[in-house]
Amino acid sequence: MLRFLSLRLGRAALTIVLVVTFAFVVLRLSGDPAMLIMGAEASPEAIAAFRASWGLDEPIWVQYFAYFGALAQGDLGMSMRDGRPALDMVLDRVPATLALTVPALLIKIGLGIPAGIYAALHRDSAIDRAVMVLAIAGFTVPSFVLSLLLVLLFAVKLGWLPSGGNQTLLHAVLPVLTLGIGGAAILARFTRSAMLEVLNQPYVRTASAKGVPWRRVVVGHVLPNAMIPTVTIIGFMVGNLIAGAVVVESVFSWPGIGRMLVTAVANRDLAVVQTILLLVAATMVAANLIVDLLYGVLDPRLRQAPAARGGH
């Protein structure tokens, strides 16, 4: 178990290093931020001074190691626009994003999993078909279209809810619904598939053939086994808590990480973009680690030989 853990931790760290490197290379090599920030009319001296003050005149590898060194001390650089520490600016926005994505995650789990389970247990019933149609719709309707349709219905036609902003609790309803409905549909489809897979296993037939009540077969045999693939998807959704609302925040003018990222990218605010990239990757990697540990809890077989499953 210890070997498995250290292997997973090492891979997680490696992924983070790769993300940082990627961010650094792409952002630094893509163009000259000094020209962009200062404008084309700035004097050469002013541009040189700007470069020197941001370390942009050093060789690229010096900048790279300096970045890692600063990173190790928790310094992610200053926003070139605001002059504030990028990490502070980004962390300021985290609560606003989580205020959307956490309730949305609860909706996804609370609606998606029961719907998937019910549909699988009542295969080919009217409800099963309805769940499947909704699930396919949830995959094919992009979130920006769904959010605009919800605005059209609830804000424009009915006038029940505001269409954008973040002043009151009511402002969060439409963005949370947009995120929650789409995710619930995907989760329902996954849960249903996983359930059907397990329902077809010999051990389920054996259990019901030897007279175990159906309810106990479902609760004791089917659900625990079907939850394993479902947990993978939930883990992915948890990893996406920070980055999952880029489009929706933009549509609803919600002041979260996603909107900040779009603005920072448009302004070429390098430090902010890198900070967000890093935060997103760290969340994702952490969620994957937790899922790996959960596998062991859910599936006793994996506790015996965890490393066997970790490979490719």
Partner: peptide
């Protein structure tokens, strides 16, 4: 190859695309 695949999977594609697009024009 497997490491690159892991990296790709660790970063939501939208985030990666946003960074590359706006910075490479």
């Amino acid at each position: 190859v497997l490491m690159l695949a892991d990296f790709q999977a660790a970063l939501p594609f939208l985030i990666l695309a946003l960074a590359v697009l706006a910075f490479f024009g």
